[in-house]
Design a protein around this nucleic acid. Structure first.
Length: 206
DNA sequence: GGTGGGATTAGCT
DNA sequence: GCTAATCCCACCA
């Protein structure tokens, strides 16, 4: 189920910067089905198919961290596309976003869930659980499993140790309002693979 | 210099 | 369903 897909872990195939320089909802939707790959310093490869994302837009989007303009905390959002914007949430967890559009826009895509493909033992160790479904089915969990921390803020996704591989599957993408926000809560900016069990909050009904 | 809130999670009822 | 855990940082004084 989760191991049948065998991605080519090669930078040759990786998504390039122009993929991320498009309108953020398009990027968020097109990221569904792609594969997030990270190679740790010890050579361990972590990979997962992205099954859930949310788009956070520029300064008109009241739910976006960029809503009140550029600050020290969110400056990565205003930087180059295809870089990571990582922040700490509720003092405990991290959330990993991919910066989109052009420099100065302040837009990004939140990675909410991935289906683990490779490096599961490492993820289990970091997550302190052996339940595969629990490894990456939420933004905080995903960040913990892939070891994304503030050190990775501004990190580029355009090299072999950290990149996104193209979608090779064809599945139905569903849309919904974003989760966990109070402002602009009706915008349909959350995208996920319909019926996929690794989507957060157990929204899969199997 | 103090304070409040947050794109969450785990564990308990 | 409810709530504690726990930390920047933005904002106001």
């Amino acid at each position: 189920m989760c191991m049948q897909y065998s991605p080519q872990y090669s930078l040759q195939n990786a998504l390039r910067k122009d993929f991320f320089e498009r309108p953020t909802p398009e990027v968020a939707q097109d990221l569904i089905g792609t594969v997030l790959v990270r190679t740790l310093t010890d050579g361990t490869v972590l990979a997962g198919r992205i099954v859930e994302t949310e788009a956070y837009l520029h300064e008109q989007d009241a739910a976006s961290h960029s809503y009140r303009g550029k600050t020290k905390r969110n400056e990565a959002m205003f930087g180059e596309a295809a870089r990571l914007y990582v922040y700490r949430i509720y003092g405990i967890h991290y959330c990993a976003n991919i910066v989109t559009e052009n420099v100065g826009r302040g837009a990004a895509v939140l990675l909410r869930a991935v289906e683990p493909l490779e490096g599961l033992e490492e993820m289990m160790r970091r997550r302190k659980t052996e339940q595969i479904r629990q490894l990456c089915n939420g933004p905080g969990k995903l960040a913990q499993a892939f070891d994304f921390t503030m050190e990775d803020n501004h990190q580029s996704l355009l090299h072999s140790s950290c990149c996104i591989l193209p979608n090779t599957i064809q599945q139905d993408i569903a849309v919904s309002p974003r989760i966990g926000i109070t402002k602009a809560a009706n915008e349909l900016l959350r995208f996920y693979l319909a019926g996929n069990e690794f989507v957060s909050r157990g929204r899969w009904k199997g």
